Amino acid sequence: MKHRYTFYWILWGLGELSGLGQWLLLRWALPVPEHELLLTFSLLPFVYLVPNILGNHLPLNVTRLLARIGGYWFIYGYYMTLLLLPAFAVWLVCLAQPFGLSLDWGHTVFSVYYGRASLLGLAALLAVGSWRARHPVMHRIEMETEKPIERAFSVAFASDIHLGAVLGHSFAAELRRDMMNLQPDLILFGGDIIDGDLGYVLRDKSFKGFAGLKAPWGVYAVFGNHDTYGMNLSKEQKRLKQ
């Protein structure tokens, strides 16, 4: 547990550094007072930290809200940090003032258009990613084998479900319904059944969404690295068996 908390504290620190860099870029691109913008970029990493550190001590709805805001910030922050690299490279070039370029041009022209384009691109990425996360794509794959199987045998496989604050009980229930509609002979779950916080998943009763999931040859699952973040594989295994 100690190492898990250390991991989130490190992410918080990196998020604060990234937020400072974003502020240096976006304060020229957004019609927002500089102090308010800096405060926003300073608070967002903290919003991500709180539900991961204190989630089990907060009301479920509060944890869910903070975790969702923090989750979207994490994805945004990851890509925005990458987009800062070319921005800082341009600023370094402007310091040398080649071809008449200057920091003034970097602030009033480059930062404005690059910053706004980055935000619009990331907004589109988050919108598409959020929609796709809630609408799983089903692929049908047919394979032939020389093994002595008397008839066509169907396997339904789902992986990286990441149950948590974003995808919870209702998503698990929809997944169960979709898999049962396939009427497979065997059901398999790949790793990362939970996103990492087993306590939240149990409080949300997300696993109950799988109630009634069955197949003639059984339902089997393996754990992934995110399941180990829950710090109690035996408890997760017991709940899944139920």
Rank of each mutant, 00 (worst) to 15 (best):
Y72S: 09
Y79F: 15
V90F: 15
S118M: 13
D104L: 14
D227I: 05
Y229S: 01
L202V: 03
L188M: 10
G230L: 03
N181K: 12
A165K: 07
L163H: 01
M143E: 11
R177Y: 07
N52R: 15
D192R: 07
L83W: 08
D178T: 06
K235C: 00
L84E: 12
L233T: 10
R176D: 06
L85W: 06
T108F: 07
K2W: 04
Y220S: 08
F207H: 01
S154F: 02
L37H: 08
F171K: 12
I75R: 09
T40L: 02
K214P: 00
D104P: 06
G191Y: 07
L213F: 08
V62H: 01
L44Q: 07
P148E: 15
P45Y: 05
L65K: 09
Y79W: 14
L182F: 05
I53L: 13
I141R: 09
G121L: 00
L83R: 03
L84Y: 09
S102N: 11
G71Y: 05
L39Q: 03
A123E: 09
L101T: 06
V166A: 10
L95W: 12
M179I: 06
G224W: 00
Y76A: 03
P184T: 13
Y5S: 12
L213A: 06
P45E: 08
L25I: 07
G196P: 01
V32T: 12
Y72L: 14
E36L: 14
L213G: 08
P184M: 15
R177T: 12
D178R: 08
E146K: 11
P86F: 13
L120E: 06
T6L: 13
S18P: 02
F157S: 12
Q97Y: 03
L175G: 08
L83I: 02
N52S: 11
P31T: 03
Y79K: 05
R27Q: 14
V201H: 07
A133F: 02
H135V: 02
L26E: 05
I149L: 15
Q242F: 05
F223M: 12
P136F: 11
G77Q: 04
M180C: 02
G15D: 09
L182G: 04
L11M: 14
A124K: 12
V47T: 13
L240T: 08
G218L: 11
H162F: 02
A117G: 02
I69Y: 01
Q22E: 09
V109F: 11
Y5R: 14
G71D: 10
M180Y: 02
P148R: 15
D204N: 13
P31I: 03
Y48I: 03
A67K: 05
H57Q: 11
P216C: 12
I69P: 13
F110H: 11
H162Q: 14
D195M: 04
W12C: 15
F223C: 01
G218A: 10
L20I: 13
L103T: 04
D227L: 07
H162P: 01
N56P: 13
R177H: 13
Y78V: 02
W12Y: 12
A165V: 05
M179W: 00
L119S: 09
I75H: 06
Y200W: 07
K241Y: 05
F207G: 00
V50P: 12
F46G: 15
L30S: 04
E142Y: 03
F171G: 12
V219K: 04
E142I: 05
L60P: 15
A123D: 11
W9E: 10
V128H: 10
L175A: 09
G100K: 10
Y76W: 10
W73I: 01
R64F: 02
P216V: 06
F74T: 15
L213K: 00
